[in-house]
Simulated scan of single mutants.
Amino acid sequence: MTLAGLRRRGVTSTAINTFVREIGITRSDCSMIHMSRLEYHIREELNKTAPRTMVVLDPVKVVITNWKDDLIKDCEARKWPDSEAESYKVPISMVLYIERSDFRLKDSKDYFGLAPGKSALLRYACPIKCVDAKDVVLAEDNETILEIRVEYDPEKKTKPRGVLHWVAEPSPGINPLEVEVRLFDRLFNSENPAELDDWLSDLNGKSKVVIPIAFAVPQLAKGVDVGDKFQFERLGYFVVDKDSTPEKLVFNRTVTLRDSYKNGK
């Protein structure tokens, strides 16, 4: 990992300097500094400086059946956790997209996403409910979900536990803003591959995953420059890469929202 690589992934000099001051100096040649300590300082910095937005990485189509076909509403979304902070408008329409992992055909007690017979809250918008398994359209393999049909609660009387991020069609029949997202992770599965006899076998096959088409809210198409940093709600911190073009933005993941690196996973 080089400083140039860290910079391209959106790591700030402030976070690096804070990390260096925190670890101090040691005379031992055998000490190992866990990557999670650097990531902690990166999160602390970006939590204060990166505005929030919504992007769906693995979209599945959701149709709100009791929504007027041509109705477009604007929801007030917050750029910062403070309720009085700056906001931006997010359009919601009859057709929207959620993460594929936020829906299951079989529900469980520890699952807070959407499922047949269960409700979930669209962040900044309204509760939705998939009434029945019959409202799920499957592909020919009878496994892949193509479309989920739901009903929304306009009076917001439902109080679901699960909250989902989403992106809607900005107008009927028009896809949301398409962006490319690169998910970077650690190069090795273990903390110290040098301890292994065959360190090559410890390479992480998912250290870089490219998602060529993710859906983003329209706000991201306005005045965004290379190096700008964002928190994709529920996903992590991301930076605009220099490979971006006027036609399509490219984002690199800087770090996840939480440290998921445990037991070599």
Rank of each mutant, 00 (worst) to 15 (best):
D132S: 14
R104G: 13
L122D: 02
N66I: 04
V60P: 05
K89I: 15
R52P: 03
A133D: 07
C126R: 02
Y88W: 04
G162F: 00
D132G: 12
V90F: 13
M54Y: 05
K89M: 15
D69H: 10
D110A: 12
Y97T: 04
R52H: 10
E147I: 08
K118S: 10
L122M: 04
E76P: 01
V131I: 15
R78M: 06
D58V: 12
P91M: 13
F103T: 12
L96Y: 10
S87I: 15
H165E: 03
K134E: 14
D153S: 07
S101F: 13
K118P: 07
Y111F: 12
R52F: 09
Y97A: 08
R123Y: 09
G117M: 07
V55A: 02
L114M: 11
S108H: 12
L122F: 02
G113D: 04
E84L: 11
V60N: 02
V55F: 04
W67I: 03
D70A: 12
M94G: 12
K129P: 02
S93D: 10
D82V: 09
E151W: 02
L138A: 14
D102N: 15
I148L: 08
G117Y: 04
Y88R: 05
L138R: 10
L146C: 15
N142T: 13
P116C: 08
L121I: 04
K68Q: 08
R104L: 13
D110G: 14
P116V: 01
T144Y: 06
P116I: 05
V136S: 10
Y152L: 06
A120M: 01
D141F: 08
K134S: 15
E143Y: 13
P116Q: 05
L96K: 13
S108D: 15
V55S: 06
I128D: 02
F103N: 11
D153C: 05
S101N: 14
K106N: 14
R52Y: 11
H165K: 11
Y97C: 07
K159D: 00
K156R: 06
E143P: 09
Y152C: 03
V150Q: 01
S108C: 15
